[in-house]
Amino acid sequence: MRVAELLTAAFLMGLSVYFMIHAAALPIGWQQGAGPGGGAFPFWLSVMMLVAAGGIFLRQAVGLLAERGSRRPFVSRVALRQVLIVVGSLLAAIALIHLVGAYVAIPLFLVFYLRAMGPVGWRQTTLLALITPVVVFFFFEVTLKILLPKGITEPLFIPLYALFF
């Protein structure tokens, strides 16, 4: 827990320095008669962020020296496995959308996720994996006229476009 606190605070400190460098691309000083320049607002806020994150870091570090820290694990082993499945399958699904499009990625994601996460039967899984993309297609593409990315499966949809538009 303590280590996670320290890492997060350190990460946020790094992030604020990173923001400061980027914000400094625009004038950060006071412009005569017009107030702060374009980069000032993000720059000085990032400076304050650095101070706040530094405060959290120091407080945790002092605590580490004083009481040898709370040794409570950041996340339990069982929960970690589940969280990693969710994060992993989510990122994989988004990456797959680039490659093979939403209508292949979403069913694949559903099948993997439902089977890996819990006792969901094959019948229910197949049903959900088949119905969800159809509902998504009719809601987003047909009704809202928003085309989802299709990757290499784009040619397969041309007859459908001809049918619905």
């Binding site: 988004i94 680039h98 439902l114 959900l128 969800t132 928003i146 990315p149």
Partner: peptide, 23 residues
């Protein structure tokens, strides 16, 4: 919960794409 969370995640992906249509 797995069914519910799976559908919410799909909705997050598709719904997040919708407003600006950017991956």
């Amino acid at each position: 919960l797995p069914v519910l969370s799976a559908l919410v995640l799909v909705l997050c992906i598709v719904g997040g794409f919708t407003p600006n249509q950017k991956m």
